[in-house]
Design a binder for these strands. Sequence first.
DNA 1: TTTATAATTCCAAAAGTGTAGAAATATAGA
DNA 2: TCTATATTTCTACACTTTTGGAATTATAAA
Lengths: 115, 115
Amino acid sequence: MAVKPTEAQITRYADMFAAMGTDARLRIVRLLLAAHPDGMVAGEIGAELGIPASTLSHHLEKLRNEDLVRVRRESTFLWYSANAEALQELLGFLYAECCTRNKAIQPQAIVTLCK
Amino acid sequence: MAVKPTEAQITRYADMFAAMGTDARLRIVRLLLAAHPDGMVAGEIGAELGIPASTLSHHLEKLRNEDLVRVRRESTFLWYSANAEALQELLGFLYAECCTRNKAIQPQAIVTLCK
DNA sequence: TTTATAATTCCAAAAGTGTAGAAATATAGA
DNA sequence: TCTATATTTCTACACTTTTGGAATTATAAA
């Protein structure tokens, strides 16, 4: 992860950042992380965040397109969950860029802040 | 940082993600991190990434608006540099959401990957 | 099969974004 | 002051995004 990312990877990380780059979608991701690993039913997400069904569906599609969330059907319900692997990749990329490949930030500044 | 962020902070992090959510701007940030803490002259960034001056100026403005980059003038040249504090905040937020507040990702998965 | 609920897809519209040439501004040196 | 260079601002435009009501599809239960 500390190695130089490819052009394609940079584009992918940019798309992932863009997917988390709206208030609505960042809240969705946070909610799904809090409910990890079970996730939440779409309707419950919408109710919690006050987002109309069709709007929510579009946001979830965007997050799914970037593989930041996964979905599984359970009868009429669609359970959405955060994709921890993808988030780990993104976090690893940002960490590497800031702390490892370059020394702009001390690793401890992140890790110890969160103890 | 591991505490619950305010509504306003979430909005701000979303805006920061959005600022890094295009190929061009993510490359700019990477370049400035590599040149940290000196930063780079605007023209040099444009030359390196093949971005026309006016387009680059808009991207830099967006990054400046989100406080992800800083600028200082040196005669005719404008030196842009990454704002490590802002990046640390953003990284800390993502780390906290994924690894601390929720346990979706093991902290070691990030830190040890980058040793 | 009819009904009910969950969620998506269709459709549309307003707003925002990315791009870049041309003109303007800032600074310094001759 | 005139000139040269660096950069931004002006202007424009195509494209994408966000939003949400209405219609449709999916699933299951009565």
